[in-house]
Design a protein around this nucleic acid. Structure first.
Length: 140
DNA sequence: GCCAACGTTGGC
DNA sequence: GCCAACGTTGGC
């Protein structure tokens, strides 16, 4: 089981919208970055991820899981871009902010801190657990 | 709204 | 294959 982090600007796609999409989930389209694409190709069904709001909020607000393996991104006109489907699993009752993550030594190696522009990021098992604890997530 | 940081592109 | 120029992202 691997863990990830999906970044989205709430203006274009928010956690609320993701939740409304329901159990079927939605395609995580629009990624045009090789590293992010490679991360998606490495995902397996059932892998979990954080849902992060960039720009506005700048906090981890939800938990998602991979509902469909990487497949061609239908919104890409050219290039072999791919996307996965993700579905909302549960809220993070106490959203974990970027501000906090930056102050906690144990989280200082998170990609979110060191490469904030990468839109799909890997998260280590330790980081996953810590943020779930901090966020008041009971069980995933 | 600004600007630093990064990834990508294209000329050489 | 290098690197300058450019566009985009995202924190502030």
């Amino acid at each position: 089981m691997a863990y990830w982090l999906f970044k989205s600007e709430p203006d274009s796609w928010s956690w609320d919208q993701q939740k409304k999409a329901g159990a079927k989930g939605t395609e995580w389209t629009g990624v045009r970055n090789f590293q992010a694409r490679n991360n998606m190709k490495a995902m397996k069904l059932g892998d979990k991820g954080f849902f992060y709001h960039s720009n506005e909020g700048k906090e981890i607000v939800g938990i998602v899981e991979v509902a469909k393996l990487a497949h061609p991104d239908s919104t890409a006109k050219e290039g072999n871009w791919e996307c996965v489907d993700i579905r909302a699993v549960t809220d993070v009752p106490k959203p974990v902010t970027l501000d906090y993550i930056k102050t906690d030594k144990r989280l200082k190696d998170m990609v979110l801190v060191n490469n904030s522009r990468l839109s799909v990021q890997p998260v280590s098992a330790e980081e996953w657990k810590m943020i779930c604890d901090l966020g008041g997530v009971k069980k995933v």
